[in-house]
């Protein structure tokens, strides 16, 4: 399964023409299933933080009656982090360049998220 997901992540990076700098698939307990991240990004820390942000965003949606959380975007001055659920057993966390085309990245992420769900359903 890990190999399948790693290939999905490589494809996601290739399709976004440098907009996506790194990507990780994280289990619901905050551990990393697979990743392709820049060397300077601590994989474990990134995964745990992504899970906390997504969990908190879920709580905010619930408290506000905002419906289901679709994605969370952190817009930093040097980089963006985009997080979305990939089914009940995983989340997809992406690091994108500050000038990344978010619309295009989101579209590719949604596609990848569906693929991750399919791969996980097989195992």
């Amino acid at each position: 399964m890990k190999e399948d997901i790693e290939e999905l992540l490589r494809n996601l990076k290739e399709k976004t023409w440098g907009d996506i700098l790194g990507v990780a698939v994280v289990r619901p307990d905050g551990t990393v299933m697979a990743s392709a991240l820049p060397r300077e990004i601590g994989e474990k820390r990134f995964a745990a933080m992504a899970l906390v942000v997504l969990g908190t965003a879920n709580r905010v949606c619930d408290e506000l009656g905002a419906g289901n959380m679709v994605q969370a975007i952190i817009d930093g001055s040097k980089m963006k982090a985009i997080l979305m659920s990939a089914g009940e057993k995983a989340l997809l966390a992406v690091l994108a360049s500050k000038d990344a085309n978010v619309k295009s990245a989101l579209s590719e992420m949604k596609r990848a998220s569906t693929e991750v769900k399919k791969v996980m359903a097989k195992y």
Partner: peptide, 13 residues
Amino acid sequence: SVKGSYEGMTTSL
């Protein structure tokens, strides 16, 4: 109603 948790472990707050 909604816990920030997975299998009994709080993962957000």
